[in-house]
Design a protein around this nucleic acid. Structure first.
Lengths: 94, 94
DNA sequence: TAATTTTGGTTTATACTATAAACTATTTTA
DNA sequence: TAAAATAGTTTATAGTATAAACCAAAATTA
């Protein structure tokens, strides 16, 4: 029987964000936006969802005088990501 | 830059169906329903979508006196699946 | 044999989701 | 100082996944 896929991660943009975050210490909102090629609004919403789930932490500060949103994957997020990938493998092994 | 993920395949149930279909010659509705652990209604809708996209073919016949829906992946479907998996790899390589 | 349940689905209503458009506040530029 | 750019957030909407409701026939049961 095929496993369930964490619906929070089974979304192109959120998965992209998590994927990017696992390979860096932290990432700025604007960088994530560029890398995922998403709109700011969509990214903002999806970051909130991941944050509320405890999959990433968001820190709001300033870079000079401009707002700066910094994201970091959490332990919980990493675990969820790994589990998701693991479940997904059943679906994509050809 | 992360690639687009074919939205038709980026759905748990549809991906599950396609995943099952690549390893068999053909599959009956009821078998797909059991394997994916889905409701008949949901499966019916998702099969229609895959069929309309040309990703699978649906043949309706009778097994004895009972209706029988048989599904087969198409060449187009196989190609789309392979492309999806390929794109997905960028997201999940850890 | 009449009523009930099961089988094998389809159609449809609804709740949820992703997404972009509209907006805010500040800063930079012309 | 007016206009445009930056760095986002909020919100409206279109699209999607899903199950509930439904249908017809067959099988079972009483």
């Amino acid at each position: 029987m095929l496993k369930e896929l964490d619906p929070l991660l089974h979304s192109q943009l959120r998965l992209g964000v998590m994927s990017l975050l696992i390979s860096v210490d932290s990432a700025e909102f604007t960088w994530l936006r560029e890398k995922t090629n998403s709109t700011a609004g969509n990214l903002s919403v999806q970051l909130d969802k991941l944050s509320e789930a405890g999959y990433l932490s968001i820190e709001k500060s300033f870079k000079g005088k401009k707002p700066l949103t910094t994201c970091r994957i959490t332990k919980k997020g990493l675990k969820a990501f790994e589990e998701y990938v693991n479940s997904l493998k059943d679906y994509i092994k050809t």
